[in-house]
């Protein structure tokens, strides 16, 4: 028993060492470019170039990725009837979409914490509202995930006069598939969403859309 077991010098104590001999059977060294091998089969000779070529479609896909914006998610709502909502206005009273049938409605989702985009678009929206209110256009502001105090401060800062109200439970936001602020929806006179604009809405976009919708027969 004092004798050192033969297998102890080998790593695999648990393996079935006695079965077939110990350790690797292949002689050490060699291995590279030993001449005594069958010549390459034809398939391998050309087929091996498939390995690098397999990478190409992937590269194309990734290159395609540059052309897309992961943050631009197309809304399925464009072209469909706008979901009805009614909103309690900061100025008192309430407003529902149904009352606005026959008018072009611009619904703007905003928040006082949305800096800088909401701060950039607010003056333009107000100007647009003042310019078009007499031509059958209504701008409605929906303030989301905000405190009333901060929202009122925001409205004072930009002297907003168009109807504005909070969406305390997020129902309107979800009904309109809102995933960030600001987002603006343009609704035509028959009550269908015609365009969704993500990010600060410029006066050019506002005027362009509103003019287009006003030209359509109601």
């Amino acid at each position: 028993m004092a004798a050192r077991p033969v297998w102890e010098s080998h790593a695999e104590v648990g393996s079935d060492a006695s079965e077939r001999g110990l350790g690797p059977r292949n002689p050490p060294g060699g291995g590279i470019g030993r001449g005594a091998k069958p010549p390459s089969e034809g398939i391998w000779r050309w087929g091996k170039w498939a390995i690098p070529l397999a990478v190409v479609p992937l590269l194309i896909l990734l290159a395609y990725g540059f052309r897309t914006d992961p943050r631009a998610i197309p809304s399925p709502l464009v072209g469909r009837a706008a979901a009805p909502f009614s909103i309690t206005l900061f100025s008192g009273g309430s407003l529902s979409l149904d009352e606005l049938k026959g008018k072009v409605v611009v619904v703007n989702f905003w928040a006082s914490w949305c800096y800088p985009a909401c701060y950039e678009e607010a003056p333009g929206l107000e100007r647009g509202w003042r310019a078009y209110r007499d031509r059958g256009v209504v701008v409605v502001g929906v303030d989301i995930q905000d405190t009333e105090e901060a929202a009122r401060k925001f409205m004072r800062q930009f002297s907003l006069t168009f109807p504005n109200g909070p969406d305390p439970a997020g129902r309107i936001s979800v009904d309109y598939g809102v995933y960030g602020v600001p987002e603006t929806f343009f609704i035509d006179r028959s009550g269908r969403i015609r365009k969704k604009h993500v990010g600060a809405v410029t006066e050019a976009v506002f005027t362009g859309e509103v003019e287009r919708l006003l030209k359509e027969p109601s």
């Binding site: 590279i32 470019g33 091998k37 390459s40 391998w44 690098p52 990478v55 590269l59 990734l62």
Partner: peptide, 26 residues
């Protein structure tokens, strides 16, 4: 992306070029 293309095409190209020496011997 250019670098990935270089690495993958270059490295796998080398593999293919050396393909004949890569057959299993064991």
């Amino acid at each position: 992306l250019g670098f990935i293309a270089l690495v993958l095409l270059g490295a796998f190209g080398l593999v293919a070029a050396r393909g004949d020496r890569l057959k299993a011997q064991g």
